[in-house]
């Protein structure tokens, strides 16, 4: 199928972008790499009357370390992240997550900001953002502001961004030295959206687990942080039995998961626990 007609603008600055979005209101749609939006346009499932392409906005393509975080320009391609030495050395979790995003041809066009703003609950980046307490820097009609990851993902394909907001930067805090991390997922085929996945980070201090984070993706309407499991883990000594127990707890406490042709809610509930357990084991194994 072919897209329905729309007007197209290619602003070159953030301010111009915000102004265009303000002018056209909710009928306008922001186009970043287009790897999610253009298929929807082609199927006429998304029908904006105005498309604002931020591909020519200067200065949104960078990765740098600032104040204990990686500051990533929203239009930085996933491929850039995958190949960035800085990311590999300072935040290998992000690199590992990137390798699970689609395929190289998708990552060449797909952007960090596009993925996070699209907020597909089965996508990897939103889960990583939530696990790391990332901060989203947003430009809007009222100026710049920062939205915490915990407040950003509202529901299925919906974020705290207002119609005239532009996500400009994602700040991903670095993990503390020696912390372990993991991203695991299960998909029908390599590169498909996950049926369920988990991002796990933790530290071990004097033999006990400190600051555990367990975030699920592909399970609910947003990435889900499982605090019950984190509380169960904190202060405990890492062990296979503990991780199995934490996995079971994850399966028990989460809200009714999504159900689709690839996995029933019951199966997703189970997989969520398995992914959490496997993620915990892998993260613990990476603790230095």
């Amino acid at each position: 199928m072919k897209p329905a007609p729309f007007e197209y603008y290619a602003p070159t600055s953030v301010a111009e972008t915000v102004a265009l979005l303000e002018q056209h209101g909710p009928e306008a749609k922001l186009l970043a790499g287009g790897q999610s939006l253009v298929p929807l346009l082609n199927m006429r499932l998304a029908r904006p009357t105005v498309v604002v392409d931020v591909g020519r906005v200067a200065g949104l393509d960078y990765v740098r370390e600032e104040d204990g975080a990686l500051a990533i320009g929203a239009m930085t391609s996933q491929r850039t992240i995958e190949r960035s030495e800085l990311v590999e050395q300072r935040l290998p979790l992000l690199r590992a997550a990137t390798r699970l995003v689609g395929h190289p041809q998708i990552r060449n066009r797909g952007t960090v900001g596009g993925s996070i703003a699209h907020a597909d609950p089965a996508a990897e980046y939103p889960a990583v953002a939530l696990a790391l307490d990332a901060q989203m820097r947003v430009a809007g009609p009222g100026g710049e502001r920062v939205i915490e990851a915990a407040d950003f993902f509202v529901t299925y394909l919906t974020t705290a961004l207002e119609p005239s907001d532009v996500l400009t930067e994602v700040r991903m805090p670095l993990l503390p030295g020696g912390a372990g991390w993991s991203i695991v997922e299960i998909a029908r085929r390599h590169g498909d959206f996950a049926l369920a996945g988990a991002v796990v980070t933790l530290s071990v201090d004097s033999g006990s687990i400190k600051d555990p984070r367990v975030v699920l993706f592909g399970v609910g309407a947003t990435p889900i942080r499982v605090r019950e499991a984190e509380e169960r883990l904190a202060g405990e000594s890492p062990s296979e039995a503990l991780f199995t127990e934490a996995g079971k707890l994850v399966s028990e406490v989460i809200d009714e998961p999504l159900s689709d042709i690839h996995a029933t809610a019951e199966f997703r509930r189970h997989l969520a626990g398995v992914m959490a357990q496997r993620g915990l084991a892998e993260a613990a194994g990476r603790v230095a």
Partner: peptide, 22 residues
């Protein structure tokens, strides 16, 4: 819809799917 890869071309040296680009 960007899955099969038949439309892959190189854009500035990078492989991209030309069916899901305007």
């Amino acid at each position: 819809h960007g899955v099969c890869g038949a439309c892959t071309i190189l854009m500035d040296g990078k492989a991209v799917r030309s069916c899901i680009m305007l």
